[in-house]
Amino acid sequence: MNGPQDLGGQMGFGLVTPELDEPVFHAAWEKRALGLTLCAGAFGKWNIDESRHARESLHPADYYRSSYYEIWAKGLEALLLRHGFITAADLAAQRAVDPAPAPRRILTADNVPATLARGGPCDRPMAAPPRFAAGDRVRTRKTNRTGHTRLPRYAHDCAGMIETVHDGFVFPDANAHGEGEAQQYVYTVVFTGKELWGEAADPDFSVSVDAWESYLGPA
């Protein structure tokens, strides 16, 4: 979906404002929001793609006025409600009122280092060879999917070159919606600035996206 998250090339947000000696967190609640998101992820009832889709599904006005951890907390609340781990009654009472389904796993403090060190690899074996090879000219599709996708709108219908053929990876467009992992090859595709932005673009830069195979067709 070309929702509020699909920011590449959008104008009007002003200058980048780096903060000197920025702390890791700016408020105590941010720490809890991060930790809760990781702990709830351990329940095993949704995946990273569904999490991202929950965040980008915030109303654009809400998304743009929210900080990163606010977006995370709102996305987490939506996921917990959707999967029945919290209810409207719990939220109204601000304490546990209703029972919850059994999670697949509860993260304990002693398991945290190993869990972080393991992460969640999402490369998957592929049965067939890749369709494209390094050096191939390709054109991205004009998909305009209403669901989750990882092809940014600025890179729709653009001609580029395959730079690298990667492994098969879980396909977010399917995985975010409970449609299975549906793995596809991923390619690093390079575009010139002019191809993406027109003749007035800086002549001396290029942009790559990492694209799943079904985002691409021959040039």
Binding site: C39, A73, E77, I86, A96, L107, A109
Partner: peptide, 16 residues
């Protein structure tokens, strides 16, 4: 959110 999830035994605050 933390109070609710800890109350249901789903989250260990020490893990956070």
């Amino acid at each position: 959110l933390e109070t609710i999830l800890v109350g249901k035994g789903l989250v260990d605050p020490a893990a956070i």
